[in-house]
Nucleic acid binder design. Sequence first.
RNA 1: GUGGGUGUAGCUCAGGUGGUUAGAGCACCAGAUUGUGGCUCUGGGGGCCGUGGGUUCGAGUCCCAUCAUCCACCCCA
Length: 425
Amino acid sequence: MAVLTKAPRGTRDLLPGEIEKWQLVEKKAAEACRLFGYGEIRTPVFEHTELFLRGVGETTDIVSKEMYTFRDRGDRSLTLRPENTAAVARAVAEHRLYAGVQPLKLYYVGPMFRYDRPQAGRYRQFHQFGVEVFGTGEPTMDAEVMALAMFFFRSLGIAGLELRVNSVGCPACRGEYRQALQERLKEKANRLCADCTERYEKNPLRILDCKKEKCREVTEGLPVLTDSLCGECGDHFKLVLAALAEVGEAFAVDPRLVRGLDYYTKTAFEIISPALGAQSSICGGGRYDNLMEELGGPAMPGIGFAAGLERTVLAMEAAGAFAEPPGLMDVFVATAGAVGQEKALGIVMNLRSAGIAADKDYMERSLKAQLKYADKKGARLIVILGEEELQVGAVTVRDMGAGRQETVRLADLAGYLAVLLKEER
RNA sequence: GUGGGUGUAGCUCAGGUGGUUAGAGCACCAGAUUGUGGCUCUGGGGGCCGUGGGUUCGAGUCCCAUCAUCCACCCCA
């Protein structure tokens, strides 16, 4: 297909019939955030490239091979945001939002961009609903953020999700553990798979998460990070888990869970939907206590998550959580005989002004074809403008469901229809 | 970046071993006697057979390349 009639790879159009699902998801996100006390923030879809290099980390996959980076006409290097935490932190620093009351609780919904190979549940332009909290390192906030994510999914009718929690420690204890791990793996490194050989240098923690049988054998019996946390990180982790238990949120501790972004500290979590296939991670998040300072803002702890909305919609579809979208037409105004369409337009406009979703024919159709069209569009009532009735100031109103029709005075039409429509609901 | 599957009508798909004008169902439009939907019947519009090369007298069909798409790896939401 020609490029002119094809959306770019990894992007897609949301068409009528599909978009209603997204409207519902966005509405539920806003509702949940209102209940939890989060205010909405909207940041630009592109930022200075430097922000993501610093914020996300230069060695991460996202930064090193997945960014949409370009130069503008002023020769600035800009990047379509691959995630939004760094950008929200930037906005908080820029507008000195930290000077207000804390904790600062924010949420966002919007498109993100990563140059990835598309597959089920993965796109180059995808959408995230996320929250970010700044100003507190208190463990119950970690639990609240996770509870908010679960609350959101539950409100959409998605069940069977798994919440996996881990602690990746702080730079100090994670660094020590990382070194110890490399030591322990040193001699066995040649027995690892090709991917893990690369991970050995870049991100050895990930080797523990490899699915390959031979790597599993190599890593069996090795100590896990959660057993090697420093005092502060360990205590924090315990308190987070206790708070989660207190709110009654089911979870599994997964010591192998590693996040791909550099800024995470302490709590890391992920929500999995078993209904989704390979890309089953529907939400990921964690604490980032050093990010704000790293970006040049004040030292200030933070925590948040990002939920993938494409995957959320897929999970809802798998759960059969969508109702039929309502029709866009309450009333169709048809013309019979020699009655002109301008007459119909006048009546349609009156009905619309009265709050009734009304429409008419624009295709020069016969009466029969007009009814057929109205039926297909889901019109509940038809107003038929006939020459003879109009002469005495009346029209015919036909109830499509019941198949009945009545003659109504034109002056009473809007009120009459409103009553009928109300009854049917 | 790597691997595998698939590209024929708007959609879902047929089109043994290459052989005239490429089919079906659904959808769309019209009609079945004057101004009445759904069901049924009849008719109609629609296809550079993804694209470009090649083999051949002849390619939707075989070969190569390319693009797209799907799935998986990687990574992540």
